[in-house]
Each structure stands twice: as C-alpha cells, then as structure tokens.
Write a protein that binds this DNA or RNA. Structure first.
Lengths: 143, 143
DNA sequence: ATAAAATAGTGGACTTTGTCCACTATTTTG
DNA sequence: CAAAATAGTGGACAAAGTCCACTATTTTAT
C-alpha cells in the first residue's frame, strides 16, 4: 500500500511528463498566425456558438483586457464578429464568421493530425486503453 | 469499437482538461519570486546534482540565451553556483547552493501541498487508482 | 424612482517571458 | 592544423500577459 506522499510524487512525475506531451502537441500552432490563447478563444466561441466576452473570460480564466485585445485582433482579421447583445447593451455577442469557422476547422485538423501522429504506432486496442485511462482520470478528479 | 478519430477527440478533451489541472497546480508558483521555467531549471539541476547548461537546454527544450539569463539570475540570487567544467573549458558545471536546495525544497513542498489538496477528497484507493492510470498512460505513450 | 454598487468591455502603460542573432572561446573532426 | 561543431553570453526585439483607470450600462437596495 502506497502512501499519499508517494501518490503525490507520482502525480508530479506524470505532470512533468504530460506537460511535455502537451507542449509537443501545441508546437505546431507556432507556425500559424495565432497563439494558443487565440485558438482557445476561437474554440470557446465555436462550442458556444454565440458567446459573450465574459463567458470566454470565465471559461479560460483570462484577463479581460487581454481578451479584449485578442477579440479585437480576431475581428480585424475577419475571424469573428462582435455585435451588441440585445438583452444587455454592455455585453458583446460574439460568433465566428464563415472565414473564422474555416480557419478554426483547419487548425483543428492540424491538431488532430498531431495527435494522430502521437498514437499512430499504437494498436487500436492500445488507443482505446489510453482513452479509457484518460476518462478514468477525469472522472476521479471530478469527484 | 471506437474509431481513431473518436480516440483523437477524446484525447483532445483530456488535454484541455489536464491543461487546466496543470495550470491550477502551477498557479501558486506565481506567488514565489521564480517563474515556472526557473523552477524547472532548479529541478533539472537538483536531479542531475551537477549539470551543464547544455544538459538543461536539452532536457527542457529551452533557448540557450534564455537559459543563460535564467542561470545568471539564479546565480545572482545565490541559488546556484557556476564553475568551469574541468573537462571542457567551454562548459559550466552548475549546482544548487545550500540556499538553493533549501529554496527548492520549500517550493517542492508547496507543490506537494497543492497536489495534496487536489486529491484530498479522494479515498486512498482512489488515489492509487489515479496514479495507476497515470502510469498506464505514460507506459502506453512511451511505446 | 433613484443613488450606489456591480458588471461588461476598452485602452494605456507596463512587466514578464521567450526568440533570434551575432559574437567569443573552446573542442572536435578530417 | 584549418574548418566545423559546441558551449555559453548579451543585444535587440517580439510576444504574452497583467494592472489599473475609465466609460457605459444594468442591478440592487432603499
């Protein structure tokens, strides 16, 4: 039976390992014109369809001023549109433009491809096992 | 039977989830005088006992100029000592000072504490399961 | 109804973090 | 021993992120 201290050390080792995995997977985004944060903003808009800046802020725990600048850039690039929320004149209603959807889709496919490479040497069974362990971790940590 | 595409989507969901976990755990370091990169450098020196800058570079995939500045700060703060390697006069031999060891130990304990909080509501059995899933992921991905 | 407090977002000014490149000093290779 | 490779430094800059003050609304409490 292992102690809590041992568990902690093992979790830290995993964190170091997985930080590197994530870093590796995200590296390809450096070749795009958009930063990790910008892509994550697009993701939040994409899943929410129509979101307010404050919702993105909450989802990402990002500074509102920083977010404001990101949204400005994305709007300038024609990736998103901002319109005043009808319910609340302080708030913006943000959504991806057709161009934005297309770009996001392209970035997504590139990300998928990266992960595809990560697991390509694994058998189908191993891939399923991997996913299963990930689900378990999420479910344990969400307790 | 799930497809590879489904596996990829699940892995991406896990990555988003775990990125947040890691972000949360690292947040406490913001209160220290040292950045994530600086602490990671201390870690590399600590596990290597006596390392060269080039080894840290390789381990962290960090720019050598950036590393040089980090080491300069750590030396100035009395955290590390740099001495010329006897075998190679181009290279530095770097190690933690007593002060550096103490600091690193303190930071480590704080990190341990963070993880302790993350898992404190879990039963001992659940903690072991968590670690076991983590080990499995490492072992699958290292194939 | 209305004054005070809260919320949504913007922009200025700044710090931190990270990158690129040219350079010196050694060591290795052919 | 000359050419190429390696180790590290520092200048100059770019990217990422933070803090604060501000305007414009909306909500809350009296």
């Amino acid at each position: 039976m292992l102690t809590k201290q041992t568990a902690i050390q093992n979790i830290r080792a995993f964190n170091r390992f997985y930080t590197d995995v994530i870093g590796l997977l995200n590296k390809h985004l450096l070749d795009s014109d958009y930063s990790l944060a910008e892509v994550r903003v697009m993701y939040e808009i994409s899943v929410g369809k129509e979101v307010q800046a404050s919702q993105i802020m909450a989802a990402m725990s990002i500074d509102k001023s920083y977010l404001s600048r990101i949204l400005k850039k994305l709007e300038k690039d024609g990736i998103i549109t901002k319109s005043l929320s009808p319910q609340d004149a302080r708030a913006l209603s943000i959504s991806l433009t057709a161009k934005g959807k297309k770009l996001f889709d392209t970035l997504n496919k590139a990300s998928d491809h990266q992960i595809g490479q990560l697991i390509e040497t694994l058998s189908s069974a191993q891939q399923q096992e991997l996913v299963s362990h990930m689900h378990s971790i999420i479910s344990i940590l969400n307790k």
